[in-house]
Design a protein around this nucleic acid. Structure first.
Length: 409
DNA sequence: AATCCACTGGAAAATACGGGCC
DNA sequence: GGCCCGTATTTTCCAGTGGATT
């Protein structure tokens, strides 16, 4: 019987002062290398402080380029200034990945202005147009200018909300609304209704990825706030920055690396973070990602993945062709009693897995012997296997040996 | 230069799924 | 429970395709 389970763990010297600072949700007060974007957005939104309607803005940029941080920061400052000047300025942030239906978006905005519980719009039960009407009366009763940020707009199901929100101003008497859409998909607007596109895209901003030096600055700044002084060795931050810069300059990625590295160091009771922990962190993040992706894969895709995995294990290196994977897949299906999908469909599943980065599939031509894809695992076989094992059905056929096909090559 | 393999990937048709309604 | 309708997935069909081989 261990008496002091947590005691020993608490004895370890913590490396963090404030872990929150390293989390993706944190909005810092200072955004290095984003002055231009901050200024631009602010210059669009000042209109709100003068009581005018600011233009709607569309913000593009890859993940981890500071879109959300800049928008939230400018919003925070806007409210602050609004209070100083005694102007009614509201700022609503909605992440459309979490709140992804028309009803819930409207409900959220409507409830932002409600103080009493009894006046709130319920989660369900109201017709959507009634929520919209309620939203309008609420906003109008409050007056002033409301800035609504829709983060990850591309995740929104259907574009009705966007259409409704973009023309809400014409239905309002006292209040004004402006919308900021944030997306990491540059082609997102192409699929939108032209009317929505033109009204939403009055102003467009593009956030370029950070380069390694800029990432370094960001990391130094955050590390200073989040970690105890002098716990990070010299090369650690440049290494994190360099690794993240390879992955299209994603700041979130860089911060994750540093945070996980520090967490690992802390857990091991190490007095500081050195480069080996960064390597470990990179490994851990990669495995966590694969685990997450593989776990949520549909059964058929798991079988295709397993087929590739087994094929690779039993072949003498080199890539497998689509035909070979399909043969193994068919055996697996028979062994587990799952319907066999057509080869055409498997082609698509293979490209899906390729997109997710679990396998690599490239089209090659074997000349006379046809054109096919060369399929390879791009993840460590063992850890992938462990995750696949979690699925009972898949685990059942794990031991199936791929029949050696008589193929003359 | 012509052939021809073993697929790819587009398109249409068929089927399955889900939610609203009576 | 049954019906309808719109959407999503899967199958069927088929016209390419790159390049080693002839």
């Amino acid at each position: 019987m261990r008496k002091d389970l947590f005691g020993a763990l608490l004895q370890c010297e913590p490396l963090f002062v404030n872990k929150e600072v390293m989390r993706p949700a944190y909005t810092p007060d200072f955004l290095p290398h984003r002055d231009a974007q901050t200024d631009q957005l602010a210059s669009i939104l000042v209109a709100a402080l003068r009581g005018d309607t600011p233009s709607n803005v569309f913000i593009y940029g890859k993940t981890g380029t500071g879109k959300t941080a800049v928008a939230r920061y400018v919003g925070k400052e806007l409210i602050k200034k609004g209070e100083d000047l005694d102007r009614r300025v509201h700022f609503i942030y909605i992440n459309c990945e979490v709140i992804d239906t028309q009803y819930r978006v409207l409900q959220n905005i409507a409830n932002h202005f409600v103080k009493e519980w009894k006046d709130r719009v319920p989660f369900t039960g109201w017709p959507t147009d009634e929520v919209y009407a309620k939203l309008k009366t609420n906003i109008d009763a409050e007056g002033g200018v409301t800035v609504i940020i829709l983060d990850e707009v591309d995740k929104l199901k259907g574009d009705e909300v966007l259409y409704n929100l973009s023309r809400i101003n014409s239905d309002l008497v006292r209040a004004k609304v402006s919308i900021i859409g944030i997306s990491n998909d540059l082609k997102f607007t192409e699929f939108l209704d032209p009317r929505v596109r033109s009204s939403l895209g009055e102003e467009a901003m593009i956030f370029p990825p950070y380069d390694a030096d800029q990432l370094k600055d960001i990391l130094y700044q955050r590390a200073e706030e989040a970690l105890k002084p002098d716990v990070v060795s010299e090369g650690v931050i440049p290494l994190c920055a360099a690794l993240a810069a390879q992955e299209h300059g994603d700041a979130r990625r860089a911060l994750d690396l540093l945070r996980v590295a520090a967490e690992l160091a802390e857990r091991e009771g190490s007095p500081g973070v050195d480069e080996s922990f960064v390597r470990m962190a990179q490994n851990k993040i990669e495995i966590d990602r694969i685990t997450e992706v593989v776990r949520t894969l549909p059964t058929q895709s798991k079988l295709v993945l397993l087929a590739t995995l087994l094929g690779e294990e039993h072949s003498d290196g080199g890539g497998l062709t689509t035909g070979e994977v399909y043969d193994i897949y068919k055996d697996l299906c028979k062994a587990s009693g799952v319907d066999i999908l057509t080869q055409r469909r498997i082609t698509d599943l293979v490209s899906e897995l390729d997109m997710l980065g679990i396998i690599t599939a490239r089209v090659i031509s074997k000349g006379r012997y046809g054109r096919t894809r060369e399929i390879q695992m791009s993840t460590p076989i063992d850890s992938t296997k462990v995750v696949l094992q979690e699925d009972e059905l898949v685990a059942g056929v794990m031991g199936v040996k791929p029949r050696k096909q008589l193929r003359l090559i």
